[in-house]
Design a binder for these strands. Structure first.
Lengths: 246, 246
DNA sequence: CGATAATGTGTTTAATTTACACATTAAATA
DNA sequence: TATTTAATGTGTAAATTAAACACATTATCG
């Protein structure tokens, strides 16, 4: 019987609440944020990388990161980095995981928090301020600097999972999109081929796509209808999902 | 056309790789780990809490946490705390989320990484070393110290989600368990009632339960059969799941 | 030994997912 | 301007999965 019982013990361990002096001195660690910025272009999923300027990793690519200031909220640091590097604000941003191996960074102990960002490459004109930034097809992302390959792999896997359960993917598309765009997006993210008819049926049955009564322009084939995603309706109707399956 | 193109820009932003001096000096932050330790007892989901000894939060409960040492891997810090507080090693432990609001801790800037731990209250005899530790029914967890209520809510939600998609839950049960135990566990975690026949059918069809040809002992009713979970088979058969639904 | 309370099992129906083919339309070409 | 081309747009049947639902069995307790 454990529940509700007060546990007796001789030794009292120092708790976090009483260690103010340590907080202020010896036990501090550099904390950074790394942004995994995904874009969707030419029907391919891309990630924005910067060339490493560290000798140890010369020629390798790395994620966009920076230290967190002591006076800055963690989320704010992620937004700041994104703004600095791309000029964008009001973009999708989500914390993914924190990486804290002692020797993960050659400059010393740096714990880093990975954030996944999804941006619409068409609509927002990127102000890319750095001259060593490139969009990379995710299929060609290998051998990144630091532990960034592991961080990238983790973020991609999480994106693949979350895009199936939440309407994240629309952040990668223009506000108006065709069903073909949407399917291309899912196929690029998940790296699978899907049946076109079943894909459309699925999304129509969810009933979150709004038919805009407009057609694609300037496409070299029969234009498709344009839709937008009804986020308001989605937010209202969210319900707890129960279904064991593994 | 963005893919593969080298982006031109005038301004070069200082990158993480060249800031060694900053890593070593002014920009460091205290980093802690908080462990959300779940147990399952009396058919209820419990969480292990410690009474806050900080005046500001006197009378309130808090999670078990401690600072991360500069020479210690982040995961190792989580294991250390768990070991110190419960005496347990070799337990399920998973990082959940990092909380980094500037003013979340009264002692100064402390960013904390939350880890979720699942332990088997029956099998492992807890060496509870601290005299202010209690197991709390998760239904009675309210108004924790610091931002621990938010952290707890986040972890519980993540547990509810993950237990449906991965065989985590078995870490909360004895190695040998009855199907009633298993259903009670799921009902406690998800806070729903399930149909017994459909629940059993579901698990049998997954084909990961091994019939041990043993019966429950010392139960005040007709004993049920005992099973164990076949982790090896599960690990071998893991497959990418594709199914859009939100 | 009878009452009790939990275990153990199947079927029917509904809902969802999968597989699959052809007519339509606009653009491009001859 | 007619033909070709390539993509859009749509429906149905079969298979799988999920949901609803009831009764016989067995060990314990009194």
């Amino acid at each position: 019987m454990i529940a509700g019982e007060k546990t007796k013990g001789a030794k009292s361990i120092k708790t976090l609440q009483v260690i103010q002096s340590e907080v202020e001195n010896t036990n501090r660690i550099a904390l950074s944020v790394d942004c995994i910025i995904f874009g969707f272009d030419e029907s391919k999923l891309k990630v924005l990388l910067i060339r490493s300027d560290l000798k140890k990793y010369s020629g390798k690519w790395s994620l966009l990161g920076d230290l967190v200031f002591p006076s800055e909220d963690l989320d704010a640091a992620a937004y700041r980095i994104l703004k600095q590097r791309t000029g964008l604000s009001d973009v999708y941003l989500e914390q993914v995981n924190t990486f804290g191996k002692v020797n993960r960074h050659p400059a010393g102990r740096v714990v880093t928090v990975a954030y996944c960002s999804l941006i619409n490459v068409q609509h927002h004109k990127l102000n890319i301020l750095d001259n060593e930034l490139h969009w990379h097809d995710i299929k060609n992302v290998t051998d990144l600097a630091f532990d960034h390959q592991q961080i990238f792999d983790t973020c991609l896997k999480q994106l693949q999972k979350r895009v199936q359960e939440h309407p994240l993917g629309f952040n990668l598309l223009p506000k108006k999109f065709s069903l073909r765009d949407l399917q291309n997006l899912y196929e690029a993210i998940l790296d699978v081929k899907m049946d076109r008819r079943n894909f459309r049926k699925k999304f129509f049955s969810m009933d979150f796509l709004v038919d805009l009564d407009e057609m694609e322009q300037d496409v070299p084939h029969r234009p498709g209808k344009l839709y937008k995603f009804n986020f308001e309706k989605y937010e209202k109707g969210k319900k707890k999902w129960v279904g064991i399956d593994f």
